[in-house]
């Protein structure tokens, strides 16, 4: 395996611009879990000029809803959900300062355009390694939307979470390049 770069979150647009699609990175620092329902509420709050429980400037959102923590554990299994469902809300969050997203799957053209405009990066965590990813979590607390249960807005502190840069701040897409390399005719 190739060696991994390291990045800490939150990070700046300048730091984001150094990452390239296909890079493998170990991410440490603060990430916020938010998925469908939390996105809807955050964007509704932004539109109404209401404050959010999370400062989006330089922030990284992790599209995830962890399973409940057993007593003595910080968190249950935690892994990425499919990102396209967050696409309708994402450009507004990027305009508000969001710099990184962790998920799986392709993004819409509107999201990629907004990522280029705002200098943001989209990371992938492999789906289905949630028990392993849970071990990178060093702290966990609910910040808002507790009524949503697994969809609550949660602050996680992670150490060396293994990620791949799927779409970089120039809009290069690692999925397309990877699939093209191994596609065979009929």
């Amino acid at each position: 395996m190739d060696s991994c770069g390291r990045i800490s979150a939150p990070f700046s647009g300048a730091e984001a611009s150094l990452l390239r699609a296909g890079d493998r990175v170990l991410l440490s620092g603060v990430v916020y879990t938010a998925r469908d329902a939390a996105h809807k509420r955050m964007v509704e709050a932004l539109r109404e000029g209401q404050p959010l429980a999370v400062d989006l400037r330089g922030a990284v959102l992790f599209y995830a809803g962890p399973s409940p923590a057993r007593p003595g554990n910080l968190v249950g299994s935690v892994g990425p959900t499919t990102s396209y469902r967050m696409d309708p809300y994402t450009p507004e969050l990027l305009d508000a300062g969001l710099k990184g997203m962790i998920g799986k799957g392709e993004r819409s053209d509107a999201v990629v355009t907004s990522m280029i405009k705002n200098g943001a990066v989209y990371f992938g965590a492999a789906g289905g390694i949630a028990a392993l990813l849970a071990r990178t979590v060093t702290s966990s607390k609910v910040l808002d939307y507790e009524d949503l249960g697994p969809e609550a807005l949660r602050e996680l502190v992670v150490r060396d979470m293994p990620l791949v840069v799927l779409i970089d701040a120039m809009g290069r897409d690692m999925y397309r390049e990877g699939t093209a390399r191994y596609r065979r005719e009929g």
């Binding site: 809803g65 399973s67 959900t81 789906g127 949630a130």
Partner: peptide
Amino acid sequence: ENSTVAAEGAFPLCQD
């Protein structure tokens, strides 16, 4: 490897 860790019984195979 994830499935080996899950089988220990603390973390389910997937958060979903």
